[in-house]
């Protein structure tokens, strides 16, 4: 199908974009790779689309030692190709390489994916596990919101009208960290039926498991609760049937196994 009619703006600065986004019925668009299909299906019918791809302020990368900060407009393909700094082991590159398809990754952006807040999105789950923060911008100043508190529900975030995600800050885990990320897809590139990311970071006292592909925000299990055995119980109310919950538990087990192996590897 074709989208319903809408007005289209391509601002050059955050200030312009923010003013445009504060109007009724306006919707921000990053790379448009998730919003595009919704527009074509006419399940999204915004009055106005504000494309953020021209904002220089949302581009580029900052590698500050304790954290990587990626501009919100960073396309998945740039991370996949190693054209940005990465965490040890090429963690980000491997995540990016398995998002949808190459021709989608060239346009789709990290910031756009987080703001779209699709429960099946790779970055939402993995960056949540990595303890990433979303840096927002408004004319009165911005805030840094941890991903665990950024998403209020499926396709919904804490962003206020006119508030724009400018960058994503990803803290570097300690030297002996372990990382695991597994998703269950019947076909490469499709939305996952189950997904789990695990970070074991003893240096910072972090043991975190994040489960995606639910009916709501990612489910975060910290400390002792970050245990594959706790997954099925923790997913009550997440809109999943018993089979899907079991699948999530199995995937969580595999992600934990990966993380433990990596952790042992860094210590060996």
């Amino acid at each position: 199908m074709k989208p319903v009619d809408f007005a289209f703006d391509q601002p050059a600065t955050l200030a312009q974009a923010s003013t445009m986004l504060a109007t009724e019925g306006a919707r921000a668009m990053g790379g448009g790779q998730s919003l595009g299909p919704m527009l074509n299906f006419r399940v999204a019918r915004p009055a106005r689309i504000v494309a953020l791809h021209g904002l220089a302020e949302c581009q580029g990368v900052e590698d500050a030692g304790d954290a990587l900060t990626l501009g919100a407009s960073t396309p998945h393909a740039a991370i996949e190709d190693g054209r940005t700094p990465d965490l040890p082991g090429g963690i980000l590159s491997r995540i990016a390489a398995n998002i949808a398809y190459r021709a989608v990754r060239t346009r789709g952006t990290m910031g756009g994916s987080l703001c779209h807040a699709d429960p099946g999105a790779d970055w939402l789950c993995t960056l949540g596990a990595l303890g990433a923060l979303v840096l927002t911008w408004t004319p009165r100043g911005g805030r840094m919101v941890p991903l665990s508190g950024f998403v209020t529900g499926a396709f919904r975030t804490v962003l206020q009208p006119g508030e724009i995600v400018q960058a994503i800050r990803i803290p570097r885990p300690g030297a002996d960290f372990g990382w695991g990320y597994v998703k269950a897809c019947r076909k490469p590139g499709e939305f996952a039926h189950a997904m789990c990311a695990v970070l074991l970071d003893p240096t910072h006292g972090v043991r975190r498991m994040v489960i995606g592909a639910t009916g709501g925000p990612p489910v975060v299990l910290e400390g002792d609760r970050a245990d594959p055995a706790a997954v099925e119980g923790a997913l009550k109310g997440a809109g999943l049937g018993p089979v899907e919950r079991r699948m999530q538990a199995v995937i969580a087990g595999r992600a934990m196994e990966q993380a433990m192996q990596a952790h042992r590897g860094t210590r060996a």
Binding site: G142, R143, V145, P146, V151, G216, P217, V220, L235, K236
Partner: peptide, 14 residues
């Protein structure tokens, strides 16, 4: 910029 916790993460079953 200033840290804001956003919504309280949902760790307990809904």
């Amino acid at each position: 910029r200033k840290r804001d916790e956003g919504v309280i993460p949902m760790t307990a079953p809904m």
